[in-house]
């Protein structure tokens, strides 16, 4: 019984980080209608950047701060240099998707050249356990969960109340409508891409102490984030949240009972089962 609850807690912890990352992927898709194939590689970028900053001898708070700022700038740069020039063309969405796929392959190989093929890891954030009502809770898990929930909560509040957040929502719901009211489309696109890069890379930092950093490790995350957004409904931020926790728990249970190999199998089974009944996903809308 205690073991089951431990497993569920671990699932919820992973689920919270998955949720944070899926929100980022879903956001870019909702706003630009471009699926970002480089999302997994940006997750890896977060891990390697943090690894590099640790190498300079900084502690966790400074490493996280520096990594997030670098990720934000990297996101702006990628959008500006390789995606924005495509937008002048009619069929830019498809071109942009292909370009993000190319970017993913480029980045992954770049990591391999710079950091080598062997796994890297980040130091443990917090060691020790917390005894609570008979359960052993790892402090690190609690902190990861807390950070992910805070980041998502803050982001939701930002989307709903801040002018720029409302502008992002407006572009996602009707791009022409947004232009009609004078929302600067290019700026919203750039900001959205940058924020989504931060969310992906932050996930990379939070999961690195558990899952390590490898040059091609992002693909697993890309597939996972994609399953989450598809299950939740493409473009629906709320859907991604529910789907991430659901799949996080399923992952923990399957890994515990049947082994890690069966996790993606189970995820896709849940996804396919859901899509047969609700092709638009849990919270998706048509069109």
């Amino acid at each position: 019984m205690y073991e089951l609850i431990d497993v569920i807690i671990s699932g919820v912890t992973n689920g919270s980080v998955y949720a944070m990352m899926a929100v980022g992927l879903s956001l870019v898709y909702g706003v630009t209608k471009v699926f970002n194939f480089a999302y997994g590689s940006l997750y890896t970028l977060g891990g390697y950047l943090a690894f590099t900053f640790f190498g300079c001898g900084f502690g966790y708070p400074l490493v996280i701060l520096l990594t997030l700022v670098s990720l934000y700038l990297a996101g702006l740069l990628i959008e500006r240099v390789i995606i924005r020039p495509l937008r002048r063309r009619e069929d830019w969405e498809m071109l942009a998707m292909m370009v993000t796929l190319g970017l993913a392959i480029f980045l992954d190989n770049l990591y391999q050249v710079v950091y080598g093929p062997y796994v890297k890891s980040l130091p443990i954030m917090f060691s020790g356990n917390l005894q609570l009502a008979g359960f052993m809770l790892s402090i690190q898990d609690l902190v990861i969960f807390g950070i992910a929930v805070l980041v998502m909560g803050g982001f939701m509040i930002f989307l709903n109340t801040h002018r720029l957040g409302m502008a992002i929502e407006a572009v996602a719901q009707d791009m022409t409508g947004a232009q009609i009211v004078g929302i600067p489309k290019d700026r919203v696109f750039g900001f959205t891409f940058a924020i989504s890069t931060v969310l992906a890379g932050f996930g990379g930092i939070l999961l690195a102490p558990k899952y390590f950093i490898t040059p091609f490790g992002g693909w697993d995350i890309l597939v996972k984030a994609w399953v989450i957004t598809a299950l939740g409904g493409m473009g629906s931020v709320r859907g991604s949240l529910y789907a991430a926790f659901l799949l996080g728990i399923i992952e923990a249970l399957i890994g515990w009972q049947f082994g890690l190999t069966w996790i993606l199998f189970a995820w896709f089974a849940v996804l396919l089962g859901t899509l047969i009944v609700r092709p638009q996903g849990l919270f998706g809308t048509w069109g």
């Binding site: 407006a170 719901q173 009707d174 409508g177 947004a178 009609i180 489309k185 290019d186």
Partner: peptide, 28 residues
């Protein structure tokens, strides 16, 4: 000039097919 700069100057378009934000309230 970009559309947003024109809106700032006071040029406002009311589209025939409306282009509202469907999931937002009337007030928003």
């Amino acid at each position: 000039l970009s559309p947003e700069r024109r809106v700032e100057k006071g040029i406002v378009y009311i589209a025939e097919n409306r282009h509202l934000f469907p999931q937002m309230s009337v007030l928003k």
